[in-house]
Design a protein around this nucleic acid. Structure first.
Lengths: 199, 199
DNA sequence: GTCTATAGCCGGATAGAC
DNA sequence: GTCTATCCGGCTATAGAC
C-alpha cells in the first residue's frame, strides 16, 4: 500500500458513489462501507464532505488530462484522436445508460445545489473543449475550431442524457455513427476549401 | 380557491423546488414553507414524498401535452411548430443556465436514485419525441421522422447541459441558430427529393 | 383542513481511547 | 491511523387537538 493509500481509496470509492448515486444522496456511511473503514476514521482524512468532493473533482481533472494525453499519443491523425473521444459513448455505454455522463450529471447536480465547486467541475468540460478545439486546429480549422469542439460536446451530452432516459443501446450506436459522419463531412469540407485556396 | 386548491398549490411549488433544487435535496419543510402551511398539514394531502413526485410528474405530463397542443394550433407550418420547440431554449435560457433542463435533470437524478418513477419521467421526453416525429412526417419525412425527432432532442439536451455548466448565453443563441439551419437543410433536402420523384 | 407536538431515524461532524 | 461512542440537527412521518 502506498503512502496515503487509505486517502486515495476514499477518493476512488467516493468518485464512483458520487457518479452512481449522486453527491447529495451519498452519505459518509456509504463511502466508509465501500472503503471498509469506520465513519469516525473518516475525519482523520477529510474534515468535511465538500473536501471529499474537491478531492474527487481534482482526481477527475487529473485523470481526464491523462486520458487526453494518451489519446494524443495514441492517435496518428486528429481524426483518430477525435474518434477516441466519440467512442467513449460506446465504451462506457452500460454505465452511461444507467447513470448518465459523469461530468454532465455532476455539473447539473452541483448547479442545483448552488455549490461553489460547480465551476471546478465545469473545468472538466473545459479540458475536453480545449483539447478537441486543438484537434480541429490541427486539421486546419481555425476560426471554427472551438465551435466544432462545442458541437461534439453538445452532441455527446445529448446522447448521454437521452440514452440514460430511454436505456436504448442501439440509439447510442446510431448516434455515434451520425457523429462520425458529421466529423468526416467537416474534414472533407475543410480539405475542399484548402484545395480551392491552393488552386 | 378551487377544490383541492391547497393540493394543487403543493404540487406547483414542489414542481418548482424539485426543478431548482433537485428532488432529493428538497425537503417537506421546504415545500411547506413555499406553500405557507405547516409540515404536519402536509400529510393530509400526500402520504409520502414519492406520492408528491408522482403528482409532479403527472402535472408535467399534462402541461407538456397542453403545450404541444398549443404549438400544434399556433403554428401554420410544421417548420413553425418545430421552431416553437427549439425556441424553448431561448425563452427559458435564464432558468436553463441556472438549473438545466427540467426533464433531463429529473430523469438523470431519478436514474441515479434508481427510483421507480424514472420511467414515468422519461415519458415526458417520449411526448416531445412523438410530437416532433409527427411534425417531420407532416413534412413528408417518413422513414427518418423519429431519428430527426431524436436528433432535436439530443441537440437541445446537449445545449441545456453545457449552457448550465458554462453559463454562456451567447452559446445558446449560436446553437439555436445552428439547429434552425439544420432544420432548414433537412426541409430543403426533403423538397429536392420530392421534386426528383415527381419529375 | 389546519395546526402543534413529537416520535424515530439518519445525516454530518466530534472526542477520545487504543 | 483506526476504532467506538456520542452529539446535534434535519429529515420523514405520525398522533391528536382545534
Amino acid at each position: 500500500m502506498p503512502a496515503h493509500g487509505t486517502r486515495n481509496l476514499i477518493i476512488e470509492k467516493a468518485d464512483t458513489l458520487f457518479y452512481e448515486g449522486g453527491f447529495a444522496a451519498t452519505s459518509f456511511a456509504d463511502i466508509a462501507a465501500a472503503v471498509g473503514i469506520s465513519r469516525g476514521n473518516f475525519y482523520h482524512h477529510f474534515k468535511s464532505k465538500d473536501e471529499i468532493l474537491n478531492a474527487v473533482i481534482s482526481r477527475r481533472l487529473k485523470r481526464t488530462r491523462k486520458m487526453l494525453d494518451d489519446w494524443q499519443a495514441g492517435g496518428a491523425q486528429p481524426r483518430d484522436r477525435i474518434l477516441s473521444f466519440i467512442h467513449m459513448l460506446i465504451t462506457n455505454r452500460i454505465k452511461i445508460m444507467a447513470f448518465g455522463c459523469p461530468v454532465g450529471t455532476l455539473c447539473s447536480e452541483l448547479a442545483k445545489l448552488d455549490h461553489e465547486a460547480q465551476h471546478r467541475a465545469a473545468e472538466i468540460f473545459g479540458l475536453f473543449r480545449d483539447w478537441l478545439a486543438g484537434q480541429f486546429r490541427a486539421l486546419g480549422i481555425d476560426a471554427q475550431a472551438e465551435a466544432r469542439a462545442m458541437h461534439l460536446l453538445v452532441w455527446s451530452q445529448g446522447v448521454a442524457a437521452l440514452s440514460n432516459a430511454f436505456h436504448d443501446e442501439a440509439f447510442i450506436q446510431r448516434e455515434v455513427a451520425g457523429i462520425t459522419q458529421w466529423l468526416d463531412s467537416v474534414i472533407v469540407d475543410q480539405n475542399n476549401q484548402k484545395e480551392h485556396i491552393c488552386s
